[in-house]
Design a binder for these strands. Structure first.
Lengths: 134, 134
DNA sequence: CGGTATCCAAAAAGATACTG
DNA sequence: CAGTATCTTTTTGGATACCG
């Protein structure tokens, strides 16, 4: 398993026949989505309750947030703790496993911050190109 | 811009009021998906033609591949080059901008390889828990 | 507060056929 | 080979209402 991890990106997930590894594909499907990155970002500082989280991710619906949280919990990335009180409270916190994702996610996130302008320009250029194909 | 990039993940994309930055959200939506990671992985070694790529990503439909490639091209991550010949050939290659994504993607990819077992176990545990809620 | 259930519309995925 | 076009089926998103 370590030998796989040590491969360069070029070889990552590829076996000798150059086919991409199925297990990584499955996991990427589980974790490589916008809300997971943003939720983990929000929680990596300190635990948050459902509605606190919802306010951080302004624009997310409670349905989408619930679904994303369930998947992250199921995958062991974060923990859900019900705090019994008169007004029920549910606290979400990052697990040790989730912590190991912090670095990769930060790298991704930092990239988006640093390159958003470049990407925007590329999009403009691309859209101009096929607007006038002559 | 650099000051943003230097924040911890906790603060990433958050402004003073703790709300997540919209531009990073938009970009994450564009790049943080399974096929983008896998396609870039495949291309980061050497350029590949459409069907070569398709074979690497065994299981992807040509529609999904075409769409992912178009988005990556539009975002300036990879370049499309038509090689005129009797049998038409189209070569996809990583751009300099795409190269800057190589590291973040590799980090993500490596994580999936290293943690797939742990996640699988977490899923089993989770699924057992609510199978028998008594 | 922190959800679940339901319904509908919209979008995405998939299969198949066709083309320069 | 490298797609596009079309159609069908699934999934998703969003709004709303309700519950412990």
């Amino acid at each position: 398993m370590q030998e796989l991890a040590d491969r360069t990106l070029a070889g990552i997930g590829s076996s000798a026949d150059n086919k991409v590894d199925c297990s990584s594909r499955f996991l990427l499907d589980q974790i490589a989505d916008k809300w997971s990155v943003l939720i983990l970002s929000a929680l990596c500082d300190k635990p948050l309750r459902f509605n606190e989280l919802k306010r951080c991710l302004e624009g997310i619906t409670q349905k989408a947030l619930t679904q994303a949280l369930r998947r992250l919990e199921r995958n062991g990335i974060l923990a859900r703790r019900v705090i019994p009180s008169s007004q029920i409270a549910v606290e979400y916190s990052i697990t040790p496993l989730g912590r190991t994702l912090e670095e990769p996610f930060r790298a991704l996130y930092t990239w988006t911050i640093n390159h958003v302008d470049t990407v925007l320009q590329a999009q403009l250029a691309f859209d101009e190109r096929d607007k006038e194909p002559l």
